[in-house]
Design a binder for these strands. Sequence first.
DNA 1: GTCTATACCCTGATAGAC
DNA 2: GTCTATCAGGGTATAGAC
Lengths: 199, 199
Amino acid sequence: MDKTTKEKILDAALELFSQRGYKGASVRMISSKVGIRESALYNHFKNKEDILNTIVSTLSSSSLSFLSSGKPLEESAKKGKSFLREFATSFKLLSYDEKSEKFFRFMMIELMQNRNIRDIFLNDFHQTHLKILSQAFFIMMQEGMIRSSDPMLMAREFLSPLFFYRMQATLLRLDRESTSSVATLFEKHIDFFWEMISE
Amino acid sequence: MDKTTKEKILDAALELFSQRGYKGASVRMISSKVGIRESALYNHFKNKEDILNTIVSTLSSSSLSFLSSGKPLEESAKKGKSFLREFATSFKLLSYDEKSEKFFRFMMIELMQNRNIRDIFLNDFHQTHLKILSQAFFIMMQEGMIRSSDPMLMAREFLSPLFFYRMQATLLRLDRESTSSVATLFEKHIDFFWEMISE
DNA sequence: GTCTATACCCTGATAGAC
DNA sequence: GTCTATCAGGGTATAGAC
């Protein structure tokens, strides 16, 4: 509560962008969702694109990558399977965070249409996670916990199913279907993957 | 050449839908790409949605699942790694087929917005491939070629990276960047996966 | 900061001449 | 089967009163 009009506009815009994409969500819809006229909206943002840019720059950094939480990777990676479980859980939990989930839906819609969103997806989102994972696998290999292989390849192999399952959960939720079957896929993925790579 | 106006409309529409989504591609753009007036377009299709439906029903079946090419699965699955390589290659080649690639881009844009497209993606596209793969893995397990595990889980683990790499290739191509690095990811995936599962 | 009023463009779609 | 002409509705954005 006690949100400023500006914040209300951003919330309404994110909601509509995530449902209909940037072009499909009109300034009219956004302002009516907030409860003001279109013209009043222009007191808070220069134009429609300004709303988009504010949302993107706010959410692209914060809501996409987790695990920036202190702890040195050297320590956590040595936990092996537990580390992977923590990573996957953080990944899965993102889809339960309302704003992250809406931004994810929006990214998926715009991925093929907007170069800027593509860059954010591939760099901020994907590369960041790959980097963490490949470092972790490298450490696990050094410790002799897992088979020796290309850490970056292993990171990709571990991350792709996580991404796919997250997308699937998002799709199911859109049709108000249960996501419990997908939730177990995360668990099964970790078990399967660990069994395959562990020495 | 020698395309009917109707075919020209469908081609132009697919091109524009794949770049801008359904809403973003106007009837005006489509008809001007064909070289006719908007009104003339209505002699060939009832309305805009009719164009979409024609495209979807034409491409959802044909361009999405390959491997319907005769040969019984029992035989090909016994080839083990070669089968996986063939499967992955067919999957990769889809992204070199112009129409399949455009339809894939369109699907990605509409996935979060259109229930019908979601169903096609999850059922026609994803489930079909999972079914083939899980049957193949089941046979390989019976033959003692690979570790024993849940065939459906294994199918998902094998397919998710393929999907992700295909998506990545599509994204790179949109920015006219080289996809050769992604092409090798397909190969590496097969090698890695086979090494992990082979007995 | 919000309102009304308005400008101007793009949208899907139809009627009727050729 | 294609054209011109036209329509109502919705799109972003601005000016000026309160």
